[in-house]
Simulated assay, not measured.
Amino acid sequence: MSFKLGLTGSIGMGKSTTAKLLADEGCAVWDADAAVHRLYAPGGLAVAPMQAAFPDAIENGAVSRDRLKAIIMADPTALKRIEAIVHPLVGQDRADFIAQAAADILVFDVPLMFETGGNRNMDAVLVVSAPEDVQRARVLARGTMTEAQFEAIKAKQTPDAEKRERADYVVITDTPEHAKAQVQAILAKIRKGMADA
């Protein structure tokens, strides 16, 4: 039986880097955002139902995130209908991953783990964290959003302090070496617990 480890953290906290560290240590990683990208891509399972519900959301045979954003801005009720299409497909993608994964520890990289209640389906949750000034600098250095957009995203996410409080494990991503050492210690603890069970 595999151990289900939830991985979450606010924007710019180093979640992608930590997911890679976990994969490097032999964990199988399922990424919720990547699953949505697969579903929205040409030939993806979300394309036909989205086209039926929101014809304007389709561009070049794929679901356009930008067009979806515009649809949601124009009609706040659209989000619930979009979620009703996408969430079951994401759930199936996750179930397929669980069925096929051979690793002892399965990592579920879900940005809104606590916000969606996904933590209830995990054996433990790991939260990545970094000082607020580091978080802000990382996000703004990407050059993909303004400070106002960053603040808007942050406002929708469970505060970092609350996430750390609710987590079973916390990885501080201040330096790559420190993050790696913490990941290795956490996995050693989980694997010891599995061996002792």
Rank of each mutant, 00 (worst) to 15 (best):
Q100E: 15
A102S: 15
A103F: 08
A103C: 09
A103E: 07
D104W: 04
D104H: 13
I105T: 02
F108Q: 01
D109S: 07
V110L: 04
V110Y: 00
V110Q: 01
P111E: 12
P111W: 01
P111K: 09
P111I: 04
P111N: 14
L112V: 08
F114R: 00
E115P: 14
T116G: 03
T116Y: 03
G117D: 05
G117M: 11
G117V: 09
G118K: 08
G118S: 10
N119Y: 10
R120Q: 11
M122H: 02
D123P: 14
A124M: 00
V125G: 05
L126A: 04
L126H: 00
V127K: 06
V127A: 12
V128G: 06
V128S: 11
V128F: 11
V128C: 14
S129M: 04
S129W: 04
A130T: 11
A130Y: 02
P131H: 15
P131C: 05
E132S: 14
E132W: 03
E132V: 05
D133V: 13
D133N: 13
Q135W: 03
Q135C: 09
A137V: 07
A137I: 09
R138L: 13
R138V: 09
R138N: 10
V139C: 03
A141I: 11
R142G: 11
G143M: 07
M145H: 09
M145E: 07
T146C: 04
T146W: 15
E147R: 13
E147G: 14
A148K: 10
A148I: 13
A148Y: 08
E151F: 04
I153L: 07
I153F: 10
I153N: 04
I153A: 03
K154E: 08
A155P: 10
A155Q: 13
K156R: 15
Q157D: 13
Q157V: 03
T158K: 12
T158P: 06
T158E: 13
T158N: 09
T158A: 09
P159S: 09
P159D: 14
P159N: 05
A161D: 12
A161F: 04
E162S: 05
K163L: 00
K163W: 01
R164F: 00
E165Y: 07
E165D: 09
R166N: 02
R166Y: 02
R166S: 01
